[in-house]
Structures are given as structure tokens and as C-alpha cells.
Simulated assay, not measured.
Amino acid sequence: MAKDNKITFYDLQHASGCTTSPFVWATKYAIAHKGFELDIVDGGFTGIMDRTGGRSERLPAIQDDGEWVLDSWLIAEYLDEKYPDRPTLIGDPSIKPLAQFLETWLWKTVVGPWARAFAVEYRDRCKPEDIQYITESRLRMWGKPMEELVVGREDVFPKVLPELELLRGILREHKWLGGESPNYADYRALAVFLWAASVADTPPMTEDEPLRDWIERGFDLFGGLGRHPGMSPLFGLKMREGDPEPFAKGPSLVAGLVKRNTGPASTRAETDHITGKGEKTPA
């Protein structure tokens, strides 16, 4: 059992102390979901091996009453296995591949474009001792200096938003990805937006973003775990003339029919639309 209801958590932080990794954010939420307090070991990108006693060069990592667990997914599975009497993170084995699919889609849709758009700010918010590592490692990852990556980023933000319609469609019908209460799928997806708020020097989403309710509620969980003072606003992007619509203004077609099929009357409007019935014949 975790001593004093605390689990030692090795954080990855900016200079402000704000967590700066989606994987680490998801693990913070997983620990809180299980009802444990976080005994945080502060630190940035350099010195991880020293902080973990040579056990890992990547984070997150936890130490639970002397037992070490590495990797965000392994930590979530460990917490469920070790503490089955506490709220479940992954209630069914099928949740893991579905959450991984959703996360992979979010990384391609959101994290990739936003990471480049916020590259300079990401570097500048780091701890001073991390700046050289971030500069050199990201140059190898992306093939360009950060100052070049952010050129034209004002065109990036409007293009990302329409791609989020899949997630909007799901969360229009459900309070959480986990249904009536959040589960680990919510934390993996929320972690993308928690990370974005840790690096955004300009809002990447509009004020009226439909995902805002879910994001705000997610940030407020566990006593405002996602409300670190080092975070920046996500909402406030001003759309320009010619930019694509950021989101569907009415019901969006997600997973087949917009409305559930309860008989012909419930589907007639859509059927008429796709078959051409009801269209006026040109005079």
C-alpha cells in the first residue's frame, strides 16, 4: 500500500514548474483518479537518470512504497492491478486499444502541427539547463531550427480546428469519453490540451470552441489539477476572412447517422437528403 496515501511522482517541468509532457500529464491524472496524493519530484529534461537512480532516462516514472514503475501505460495498468478496490482507470481491456487509437489520431491531428507552431515558446519556457538539449534534440527530430518551424504558424491554427470534429461529435453525445465519469481515455486525450496550455503563447482555439466545456471540466478535476499558474489560455483565436469554419455549426455526421435510428420518422430527413427525395424539380 502506498505509504501515507502518497505515490512518488517524477515530473517533467518547465521553468515555471508546469508539467510539459502529455504522457506525464496523463499519469498525474491517473494517480489522482485512484485517490492518491502526488509526492512530486521536480525536474526538467536534464538529470532524469540522476533523479531516478539510473532507472530511466524518460518520464513519467513513479515509486510506490519502494516499487518503481516506468511508462505511462504501464503505470496506469499497475495502479489498476495493485489497487482494484479504488476507482478503475481501464475498466475493460478494450479501452486500451481504443484509447491508443484516439491518442494516435490526436497526435497526428493536433500535437504535430501545434508542436511546431509553439516550438520557440516550448524551448523558451524550459528550465535554463534544458535549453541546449531541447534545441539540439528538436532540430534532429524536425530537421529545422525552431525559428523556421514557426514561420507561417498563423495559417496552422485554423487548419487544425476542423479536424477535431470527430472528438466534438463524440463529446456532444457523452459527458466524458468514459461515459458519465472520466476514465483513462479522457486523461490521455485531455493530456494533449494540458500540454498545449503549457506551451501556448497564443490561443490555438476559438472562444466558442465546442470542446471547451469538456476541456474546462477536465482541467478542473481533482481540485483543479490542470490549473497550474504556468498554463496559458487555450481559447481566444480570432478567425480571419478566408479561414475554414473551425467547427460544424449544427449536428455533425459522426459515426453514421446524425440521429439514432428509432424508426423511419427519425431517419426520413437524412434519407430524403441522400436520395434526393423532396428536392424541387427545376422549372
Rank of each mutant, 00 (worst) to 15 (best):
Arg212Val: 04
Tyr83Asp: 07
Glu216Asp: 13
Arg217Asp: 14
Ala2His: 07
Pro162Cys: 00
Arg217Ala: 11
His228Asp: 09
Ala115Tyr: 14
Glu121Leu: 00
Arg153Asp: 05
Asp4His: 14
Glu103Tyr: 14
Tyr83Ser: 10
Thr267Ser: 07
Ala61Gln: 13
Leu70Thr: 12
Gly224Tyr: 07
Leu164Ile: 12
Arg268His: 12
Thr109Trp: 06
Ala255Glu: 13
Gly44Asp: 04
Gly179Val: 06
Gln100Ser: 10
Ile170Asp: 07
Leu225Glu: 01
Pro210Tyr: 10
Leu98Asn: 12
Leu98Ser: 09
Glu216Gly: 03
Asn261Met: 10
Lys159His: 12
Gly179Met: 01
Leu139Ser: 05
Glu147Cys: 07
Asp11Ser: 12
Trp105Arg: 13
Ala32Trp: 02
Glu207Trp: 11
His228Ala: 04
Lys82Arg: 15
Ile40Tyr: 06
Trp25His: 08
Thr109Ser: 10
Leu194Tyr: 08
Gly278Asp: 09
Val258Thr: 14
Leu177Asp: 06
Phe23Gly: 04
Gly35Thr: 00
Ser72Cys: 13
Lys159Cys: 08
Arg212Met: 03
Phe157Thr: 13
Asp65Cys: 09
Ala15Gln: 11
Pro264Leu: 02
Leu164Cys: 14
Leu106Asn: 01
Phe235Tyr: 15
Gly276Asn: 06
Pro244Gly: 08
Lys108Gln: 15
Tyr78Ala: 10
Val41His: 03
Ile131Arg: 14
Gly91Asp: 10
Leu161Tyr: 03
Glu57Ile: 09
Thr88Gly: 00
Leu234Asn: 04
Trp25Asn: 02
Lys159Ile: 02
Tyr133Val: 04
Lys28Phe: 03
Arg58Lys: 15
Arg86Ile: 04
Val258Asn: 08
Thr281Ala: 13
Gly276Met: 06
Ser21Gln: 02
Gly223Ala: 07
Lys96Thr: 09
Arg188Thr: 11
Gly178Val: 07
Ser72Gly: 08
Pro128Thr: 12
Leu70Glu: 12
Pro210Arg: 05
Ala117Arg: 01
Glu103Lys: 11
Pro158Ser: 06
Ala115Ile: 05
His14Glu: 11
Ile90Gly: 00
Pro84Asn: 06
Ile131Val: 13
Leu74Phe: 14
Leu70Pro: 01
Pro158Asp: 01
Ile134Asn: 07
Glu209His: 12
Glu129Gly: 05
Tyr83Ile: 08
Lys249Thr: 06
Leu194Met: 15
Pro87Ala: 01
Ala119Phe: 09
Val150Ile: 15
Gly224Ser: 11
Ser72Glu: 11
Leu59Lys: 05
Trp105Met: 08
Val150His: 12
Glu216Tyr: 00
Trp214Thr: 00
